[in-house]
Amino acid sequence: MPNLDLTFFAVAIPAVIFAGVSKGGFGSGVAFASSSILALILEPGQALALMLPILMVIDLATLGPFWRRWSWPDARLLLSGGVPGVALGAWLYQATDADLLRLLIGGISIAFVVWHLSQSRGWLHGFSKRLPPWAGLFAGVVTGFTSFVSHAGGPPAAVYLLSQRLTKTEFQATTVLTFWVINIAKFVPYAFLGMFSVQTMWADLLLAPFAVLGAWLGVRAHWMMSERMFFGAAYILLSLTGSKLIWDALS
């Protein structure tokens, strides 16, 4: 059970706002950093359960501004694989323990940063042509699975969508639609697995206004803010929190 004290809210409020900004304006790619941050003070399962309703609130807040601006063929492919991926995550979740989840969340955090740095330094190059439809289905399965076990579906979805040469707004709107559906699909198995508690729901109610605030800031930032500045801070944060989680899991 999360202890709803000053320390909790000092960590949770910035994490929730950060998730709102990322999902509201920058394609959800680093929104899972909020789960990494919360996992520093909560059991990983508690952090995931706390964040899911928050993510659903952010989805609703951002759906309107990007309504029907998405690439439906790409969203359809991701969702066709994403829902089975959620089912796979629910099936395997019961076989995991807290340290394995810490290791998974931390590993995904570090891998995403390394992938980004490799591209920015020229060690890896962007896609020369669009990935085929089967790659979208596969990316959807990975997206659904990683979204279920760590709310980290943004990176695999981004890898596929970046290859499709979408505009910034098409990219953002497609992720909004995709994760709106995937997060709804995750709610029932989360409840069935007993991940929610009265205390996490109270925490979600108290944090919901900050989620809406973050989403509003993210939508505005989508049109105004430098992506380089935002993601630069996000990659540093992911590196620090990911390293800490891996250390905790292995020690």
Rank of each mutant, 00 (worst) to 15 (best):
P73G: 10
R68P: 03
I108F: 09
T178F: 11
F148I: 02
Q172W: 02
P65V: 05
H116E: 11
D99P: 01
L193I: 04
F9E: 03
G194P: 02
L124A: 12
N3R: 10
F145V: 10
L50D: 04
P156F: 07
A47S: 15
M224G: 01
L92Y: 14
F171I: 08
A173G: 04
P156R: 04
H151N: 14
L50A: 06
L250S: 07
Q199C: 04
F192T: 14
P53S: 09
F138E: 00
A12Y: 13
V142C: 04
V198L: 02
D59K: 12
E43N: 10
T169N: 10
I108M: 14
G85A: 12
A211F: 14
I37D: 01
E227M: 08
F148Q: 02
V212G: 00
I236E: 03
L42E: 05
D5K: 13
V57P: 04
G242N: 10
G25R: 03
D5W: 07
N183R: 09
P84Q: 13
A19H: 07
H222W: 04
Q164C: 09
L205K: 10
L238D: 05
I108V: 15
A208K: 04
I108E: 00
T200H: 02
L77P: 03
M56I: 15
V212Y: 01
L117N: 05
G122R: 13
D59T: 11
H125S: 11
S118C: 06
I41A: 03
T146R: 07
V21W: 02
G89Y: 12
Q119S: 09
S109Q: 04
G214D: 06
M229E: 10
V219M: 06
I108P: 03
A233V: 15
W202G: 00
V176S: 08
G89M: 13
A31M: 08
R68I: 08
